[in-house]
Amino acid sequence: MPHFPPPGPLGFGGAPLGNMFERVDDVTAEAALVAAWDSGVRYFDTAPHYGSGLSEHRFGNVLRQYPREDFTLSTKVGRLLRPDAGRPDNAPFVDGLPFRVQPDYSYDATMRSIEDSYQRLGLAQIDIAFVHDLAADHLGDAWEEQFEIARTGAFRALTQLREVGALKAWGLGVNLTEPCIRALEQADPDVFLLAGRYSLLNQPAVERLFPMCGERGVHVVIGGPYNSGLLAGGRTFDYKDAPPEMIAGRDRIATICDRHGADIRSVALQFCAAHPVVAAIIPGAKRAEKVTENARLMEAVVPAAVWQELKHEQLIPADVPTPN
């Protein structure tokens, strides 16, 4: 069956609106989502984990203003929310809703998660469901065991929901390529949300995952195109202090961009979007002005000499696709 691609090239990632690292008030969050819509964005991604349901609530409150057939919405499964008046820690999110996050990749939990997301969003249609963080730090060395639970549980549930038309597509939302490769080998996913593994600084996805996706007609959404901030002027990589070699790589790329009058952020976004298996990129943003800026950066002209020099200096692989 044909796989359902989310519309791109620019989407909206919902982690920041779950109060990632800092509190965002409702007015600011709504303005960011409206700015995304006004900028032409029609793909929106969220998750129960983001602020213990806060991001989903905010997405639903805004997206209900628009015709449902005019946008694509993805959320995630694998984290159930349990009421907890003590507002337990859910780092890196702050001041989220009063729910405790419980990882669970079983069949029943997946069905429950989808139903809960309908309620939080206030919408009757979820287009794409990603199995969330099936190789994250909270799993440690146990991710392969959890993958097997997901294979017989979440994968089976989401496949059934796709077959009856309740979902248009399902896949994994992860920051490692290995679970995606295994999912392609053992199941029938449609799309992956891959964070931080295809960027100007880091491209392990081109080795095996992207060729496999190309052969199967499976699409990829790129999260973290700025590598959690390092490519946008920050000092973090993978949400931690950036290692010296990554800072040095960023500085070399920035020097080339400056020499040709290109904004490194434009180069970062457009690099991710240029690969043929990539359907959309979803940089996160907390504020309307940053959303509008991302849209402008996506459209900015990057001189061909930038791509040529990045390849010549072996800062990106010589054979990766780059914009025309």
Rank of each mutant, 00 (worst) to 15 (best):
V27W: 06
A91K: 07
A268W: 04
G223P: 10
V34S: 07
T28R: 12
N324Y: 02
Q270G: 08
Q102V: 09
D38R: 15
V41W: 12
E145Y: 05
A154P: 01
F192I: 03
A242V: 11
A85S: 14
L158K: 00
Y43L: 05
A109G: 02
Q308M: 08
V191W: 00
I316S: 05
P244H: 11
M212P: 03
A150D: 01
G229F: 14
R64I: 11
L121P: 01
V218I: 09
A273F: 04
E313L: 12
A166D: 09
L134S: 01
G122I: 06
R182C: 03
D258K: 15
A35V: 09
P321W: 04
F12G: 07
A36L: 12
E313K: 15
V221C: 10
R287F: 09
H260F: 15
P6A: 13
P48D: 12
D84I: 06
A169N: 04
G224W: 06
L200H: 03
P225Y: 12
I114G: 00
W143L: 05
R151H: 08
Q160D: 13
R197C: 03
S55V: 11
D116R: 09
A157R: 02
Q203E: 09
G40L: 11
H260L: 13
R112W: 02
M212W: 04
H132Y: 02
D45N: 15
R265H: 11
L167F: 01
D319L: 12
G13P: 06
N202L: 05
Y107P: 00
P6S: 11
K290Q: 15
R79I: 09
K290P: 00
E313M: 12
I181V: 10
I282Y: 10
A85D: 15
L315R: 01
R156Q: 13
V302Q: 04
E299L: 08
F155R: 04
A124L: 13
I247K: 14
R100E: 10
G171S: 08
F237S: 08
L310K: 06
G165F: 03
D238Q: 13
G86C: 09
T152C: 05
R68Q: 14
A274C: 05
S266H: 06
H138Y: 15
H312S: 12
V306C: 04
A195R: 03
P244Q: 14
V278D: 04
V320A: 05
Q65Y: 11
A305L: 14
R100D: 02
G18W: 03
R68M: 14
Q203S: 12
F192C: 03
T177A: 09
S113Y: 02
I114D: 02
V27S: 12
T46R: 10
P7M: 11
P276A: 11
M1Y: 08
G53Q: 05
L139P: 00
A47K: 02
V206H: 07
A285I: 09
E299H: 07
G11D: 02
P92T: 10
D89G: 03
L230P: 05
I247V: 15
L184T: 01
D133R: 03
L73I: 07
G249Q: 15
P92W: 09
F21P: 05
R296D: 07
Y66A: 14
K76C: 06
